[in-house]
Computed example of a mutant assay.
Amino acid sequence: MIHVVRTMLVPRPMQDAVNYFADFAHAQDWDPATVSCVRLDGGPVEPGARWRNVSRFRGRTSALVYRLDTREADRLVFTGENASVRVTDELRFAPASGDVTRLTYRAAFGFKGIARLAAPFLRREVDRLADDVAAAVPRTTAP
């Protein structure tokens, strides 16, 4: 399993930031690896909501179905899965100053099957993806 943690500042008040990130379709704005992200169901964005996320990783695209598992005033947890990987994204929010929110992003990548053998070699690429997200979030999330 590969774990990454990044902290960044979001130029939005905390409640706005939580609402924005709760709709995982916005990943195509703030995650440079995301090619597309489409909601698979309707209704309110609450635990159980699902999205189909297509991302580019190591030059290849793959699709994961993400589910919102937890939605709290200061915390979101998503799980994305396909045949070769399970990703858990935890986003924690705290007021920083004024209308700025501190976001701590934690992701755990659990590779499945033969992909588990490659996990030690994927660490650098996963770190690069997390760095790209940390760089993109402050400039792409302004209201």
Rank of each mutant, 00 (worst) to 15 (best):
M1E: 06
M1R: 05
H3C: 08
V5Q: 15
V5W: 05
M8I: 05
L9T: 12
V10T: 02
R12H: 11
M14A: 08
Q15C: 03
D16M: 06
D16G: 12
Y20H: 08
Y20M: 13
D23S: 02
A27W: 01
A27G: 08
W30M: 12
A33Q: 15
C37A: 13
V38H: 05
G42D: 14
G43A: 08
P44W: 01
P44H: 04
G48R: 06
W51C: 11
R58W: 07
G59I: 11
R60W: 04
R67E: 15
R67C: 12
R67N: 05
D69Y: 03
T70D: 09
D74M: 01
R75G: 15
R75W: 15
L76N: 05
L76Y: 10
L76E: 05
V77N: 02
R86P: 09
T88M: 14
E90S: 08
A96T: 05
A96M: 04
G98N: 08
V100E: 13
V100S: 06
A108G: 07
F111R: 02
F111M: 07
I114M: 12
R116L: 02
R116A: 00
R116H: 05
L117N: 05
R124P: 03
V126N: 00
D127M: 03
R128K: 13
A130E: 09
D131M: 10
D132S: 12
A134M: 09
A134T: 13
A136I: 06
V137C: 14
R139W: 04
T140W: 01
P143W: 01
